[in-house]
């Protein structure tokens, strides 16, 4: 029963370790987020402030910042795990565990790699699965000798991360309801395409092609994005 309880945030540790990032890259990223916020004509959104608060927790063990993170994320996380079927008290406990993990792992968070909400999402997702299975969810481990590192320069990645965030946000808004509903079922109701097919009576192939259409519209698969070239 060893590695069941091993470090639960390999991905994030990996992200922190891999990023030989420079201040230039940070400025690039700040610029992109700045533009994004200017577009929606509000100062810095509450969600965007979370990145900085999480960094403050990681660097200075700042309890005030942690409380603001808790106030923002805990009710969302509770809603998330309850949508996935957890009872109130179980949900509460899972959220506590997830937020404790946020506190403990905050120093591995890299704002150039992902928004705080994405990082917190992956922690809560894993906590919930580990609780159901009573076993650690398998994840790739960058310290694994078999691990195949990527060749892209870190600098590209940070600019790309910011662009991705923005694209996903816009695309999700513009997705036809039928496809948006499918995505919600996968993320918020824990339904695989097989379960959706069995439930709706739709052929498996139909469900799969609808999901693929949605992913294609959001340009979330690598092929799509790369074929799309420089178009907006």
């Amino acid at each position: 029963m060893d590695s069941l309880h091993r470090d639960e945030t390999n991905n994030h540790v990996e992200a922190a370790l891999k990023s030989g990032r420079s201040t230039v890259v940070r400025r690039n990223k700040a610029h992109l987020y700045g533009t994004m916020n200017a577009n929606v004509s509000e100062p810095v959104s509450e969600a965007a402030q979370m990145d900085g608060l999480l960094v403050a927790v990681g660097k200075h063990r700042d309890r005030g910042a942690f409380q603001r993170l808790f106030d923002f994320f805990a009710p969302r996380l509770k809603a998330y795990v309850m949508r996935l079927g957890a009872a109130d008290d179980v949900a509460e406990e899972l959220v506590q565990e997830a937020m404790l993990m946020v506190w403990r792992r905050a120093e591995t968070y890299d704002p150039g790699q992902a928004r705080a909400s994405t990082w917190v999402f992956t922690i809560a997702r894993n906590k919930r699965i580990d609780a159901i299975r009573r076993a650690k969810r398998p994840e790739p481990d960058m310290n694994d000798p078999s691990f195949m590192p990527e060749e892209v320069q870190p600098a590209d990645r940070f600019v790309e991360a910011a662009q991705d965030e923005e694209r996903v946000k816009e695309a999700l808004k513009n997705l036809p309801e039928e496809q948006a509903e499918l995505i919600r079922q996968v993320y918020f109701q824990d339904k695989s395409h097989r379960v959706i097919a069995a439930e709706t009576g739709l052929p498996l192939g139909t469900v799969k092609s609808r999901i693929r259409l949605a992913l294609k519209k959001m340009r979330l698969t690598i092929e799509e994005r790369d074929n799309a070239g420089t178009s907006p």
Binding site: R76, A114, R115, A124, P138, F147, M148, V152, Y187, I222
Partner: peptide, 27 residues
């Protein structure tokens, strides 16, 4: 899937994007 991701940087990237979608939905 985790075993494939260990060997496939391309799919790791796709999964990162899909996790961003999860983060955005949570937000």
């Amino acid at each position: 899937i985790a075993a494939h991701l260990s060997l496939c940087p391309t799919c790791r990237k796709t999964v990162e994007r899909l996790e961003r979608m999860g983060g955005h939905m949570l937000e």
